[in-house]
């Protein structure tokens, strides 16, 4: 059984959007809810998205997938209320070796992701630019009904769903690209969709995925 560590925060509206969509599509994945489940989910959510709790969660040889949304820079990824979780000054936790990592955050793919791979992470997915999305100025309740935010965050969720399904990078990337084309096509089909299309494209061209630089493209999550 693979151990999956999920990191989510709720201290601003952007993180609330990410968390709500990811709860709906990632953390409700059948691999966690099946009988028996094929993966164990360790939740480091909200006030548990802090270094002490996350360190404990990933400090197991069973830890094989870390997925999280949060604020980031090229060199860092932060937790609840901006507390530093990982940066490039410190070595990543030793148990990152062999782990697949996906961070829905700004820029952390740039240097932090490379550091993870240099220290043995099997694969890294993330972004080298600011992850951005359009949403309603008056956010709806629930947030997952926001038709503008949906395409952006659901596209990113394809990465998690593919990993949880046990797929390799090529299969995930192929599906992600097909769905990106669909979403982009839908945006350019509207006279007022260009700004959205530009943001979606900007995220997509700055996606980093396992390959020559960000880990093993054949890495996949085994249920056992």
């Amino acid at each position: 059984m693979a151990r999956v560590v999920g990191i989510e925060q709720n201290y601003d509206i952007v993180l609330q959007y990410c968390q709500e969509f990811r709860k709906a599509h990632v953390y409700s994945h059948g691999s966690f809810t099946g009988n028996p489940p094929s993966h164990t989910l360790i939740r480091s959510f909200d006030d548990d998205a802090v270094p002490k709790v996350i360190s404990r969660a990933v400090s197991s040889d069973e830890g094989r997938f870390i997925t999280g949304s949060g604020h980031g820079t090229y060199r860092s990824f932060t937790g609840q209320r901006g507390v530093l979780i990982w940066n490039t000054v410190s070595k990543p936790p030793k148990h990152v070796a062999g782990t697949i990592v996906h961070l829905l955050s700004c820029r952390a793919g740039g240097l932090l992701g490379l550091l993870f791979v240099q220290h043995g992470a099997a694969a890294f997915w993330g972004y080298t630019t600011d992850f951005k999305f359009f949403h309603e100025a008056n956010p709806p309740n629930p947030l997952t009904t926001d038709q503008y935010a949906k395409s952006f965050i659901q596209l990113d969720a394809i990465i998690d769903i593919g990993i949880l399904n046990g797929y390799d990078a090529a299969r995930i990337h192929n599906h992600l690209e097909a769905e990106f084309r669909k979403a982009y096509g839908s945006m350019i089909a509207r006279s007022n969709g260009a700004a959205e299309a530009a943001a979606l494209l900007d995220n997509f061209v700055h996606l980093v995925s396992p390959g020559r630089t960000w880990g093993d493209p054949g890495a996949s999550l085994s249920p056992t």
């Binding site: 955050s105 700004c106 992850f131 359009f134």
Partner: peptide, 10 residues
């Protein structure tokens, strides 16, 4: 009716 949010930048 929309805003652009940047993760970490408002």
């Amino acid at each position: 009716e929309v805003v652009l949010s940047i993760v970490g930048d408002g």
